[in-house]
Amino acid sequence: MEKALLSNLTSIHLLPAKSHVVKRSPRSPCCPGGWTKYGHRCFFFNSTVASWADAEKLLVHGANLASVHSIREYQKIQRLTAHYGYPQIWIGGTDAPQEGIWLWSDGTSFHYSHWCPGEPNNFHNQHCIQMNYGGSKCWDDVWCDAHLPSVCAKKV
């Protein structure tokens, strides 16, 4: 019996000790340096002035010109642009494929808008959205070849 007990004790002694590693919860996604997180997206102000199409092409990190889905998101973007001192900027809205049907360049649905009174008016074929227009800081459709800075966004 003692030999069997000793054999069992030796076997127990040779088993690896239990690990006391604490499992960490997955890291919450974060934004690249210079980007601002809001909700499930990161926003970036690009001070390079460009046409709407060129601004969309300049983007990095899997981003598009920003789509806007609520007044809070709009206000967050406004604070971001105010920090850099630029009034009008590009966001990702366009009706270039079909007049009056506004789309976001990131493919999300266009269910929120903040148009200025009388806008969009398609004055001489205006198909892209600038935000922070005029005293009301609202949206205006403008010619897509105008040169403005932009705000882009990506999901995290």
Rank of each mutant, 00 (worst) to 15 (best):
P97S: 09
D95M: 08
F45T: 08
Q78I: 10
Q75P: 03
Y84K: 12
E99Q: 15
G39I: 05
S105E: 15
D141V: 13
F45Y: 15
V60W: 09
S70W: 04
I71C: 05
G85R: 12
S47Y: 06
Y86V: 08
P120A: 15
N64V: 02
G85Y: 06
S105D: 11
N122M: 05
G62D: 11
S47A: 12
V49H: 04
A96E: 03
W90H: 04
W102M: 07
F123I: 12
L80D: 06
Q126D: 15
F44C: 02
E99M: 13
F44Q: 00
W104Q: 04
Y74G: 07
W143T: 05
Y38E: 11
G107Q: 10
S47G: 11
V60I: 13
N122H: 15
G92I: 01
A146W: 00
C128Q: 10
I129P: 04
S67W: 11
D141W: 09
I89E: 13
W115H: 05
W90Q: 03
R41G: 02
Q98M: 06
A96L: 02
M131L: 11
P117Y: 12
L148M: 03
G100V: 13
S105N: 07
P117T: 13
W139R: 06
W52F: 04
T36W: 06
T48H: 05
A53K: 00
G100L: 12
G134K: 13
R72W: 14
S105K: 02
W143P: 03
N122Y: 15
L59P: 02
F44N: 01
W143H: 07
Y133E: 10
P87R: 03
G85A: 11
H83M: 13
G85E: 05
I129Y: 01
G92M: 03
C116S: 14
H127S: 14
Y84W: 11
A53F: 00
L103T: 08
E119I: 05
N132S: 14
F43S: 11
P97W: 08
K57H: 06
F45W: 10
E119Y: 11
G39A: 07
A96V: 01
L58T: 02
E73N: 04
G107W: 11
H69G: 07
H147M: 02
P117M: 11
W139F: 13
C138A: 04
H111K: 12
G134N: 15
I71E: 13
G62K: 08
G93H: 09
F123P: 01
W115I: 04
K76A: 11
W143Q: 06
G100T: 10
Y84Q: 09
G62M: 04
W104T: 02
I77L: 10
H83W: 12
I101T: 02
N64Y: 04
N46D: 09
V142A: 01
R79T: 13
H61K: 13
F43H: 10
I71T: 13
W115D: 14
L59M: 08
G92N: 02
V68K: 15
T81M: 07
S47K: 14
A146S: 03
R72S: 15
T48Q: 09
T94W: 00
Y112L: 03
Y86Q: 10
A55T: 00
Q130K: 07
F45N: 07
S113T: 03
V68S: 09
V60Y: 07
C128H: 09
I101R: 00
H40I: 02
K137T: 06
H61G: 08
H61S: 11
H147I: 00
I71Q: 14
K76Y: 12
D106E: 14
